[in-house]
C-alpha cells in the first residue's frame, strides 16, 4: 500500500511537472512582443514577463533586397501621448503591462508628435517593421512586417 502511495505521488509529480512544461510552452517565446494595430502606424508593446526597462526610442526598419535596414525615422518613441518635452531615455513596462504609443505618421521626422524638422517627408511605400530594444541594448523585439502604401 505504502509503495503504491509512493508510486502515485511520483506519478502525480511527473504529471505536475509535465503540466508545468506545457504551461511554460504556452507562454510566448519572447518576454516582450510588438503587435500591430488595426490602422497604419498603430502598434502595442506587450510585456509577457516581469517588469522590463525599454529604450524609449522606437526604430523603424524597411525591408530592402530581402534584408531589414534601418529607416531614417526619428522622433518615434514609446509615449502614449504627445508632450512638448522629449520622453525619458528609458521607459519601464511593468509585469504583464502593455503600452500603446502614439502611432507612426509615416513621415521621417514629424513621425509621431509635433517635432522640430528642417528636412522631412513621407517614407516611401514598402514593407516596414517596428523594433523596440531593451534599455541595455541587449534584446530587441520586432513587430510583424506591415505595408506602407
Amino acid at each position: 500500500m505504502g509503495q503504491f502511495r509512493r508510486q502515485a505521488l511520483v506519478a502525480a509529480a511527473f504529471l505536475a511537472s509535465g503540466f508545468a512544461i506545457l504551461v511554460a510552452r504556452a507562454q510566448p517565446s519572447s518576454p516582450v512582443s510588438v503587435e500591430l494595430g488595426a490602422r497604419f502606424g498603430e502598434f502595442v508593446v506587450v510585456n509577457h514577463g516581469s517588469a522590463v526597462l525599454l529604450n524609449s526610442t522606437v526604430s523603424v526598419e524597411q525591408k530592402a533586397g530581402g534584408r531589414w535596414e534601418k529607416a531614417l525615422v526619428s522622433n518615434l518613441a514609446l509615449r502614449e501621448a504627445c508632450a512638448p518635452s522629449p520622453p525619458p531615455k528609458c521607459t519601464k513596462l511593468e509585469r504583464t503591462a502593455s503600452l500603446r504609443p502614439v502611432p507612426w505618421t509615416g513621415s521621417f521626422c514629424s513621425s509621431q508628435c509635433p517635432s522640430t524638422c528642417r528636412l522631412d517627408g513621407p517614407a516611401p511605400a514598402g514593407t516596414y517593421r517596428f523594433v523596440v530594444t531593451t534599455c541595455s541594448g541587449e534584446h530587441s523585439y520586432a513587430s510583424p512586417p506591415f505595408q506602407k502604401p
Partner: peptide, 11 residues
C-alpha cells in the same frame, strides 16, 4: 526633392 519644414513651441 521635396521638403516641408516644421517646428513647435510648448504652449
Amino acid at each position: 526633392f521635396f521638403d516641408a519644414p516644421s517646428d513647435q513651441f510648448p504652449l
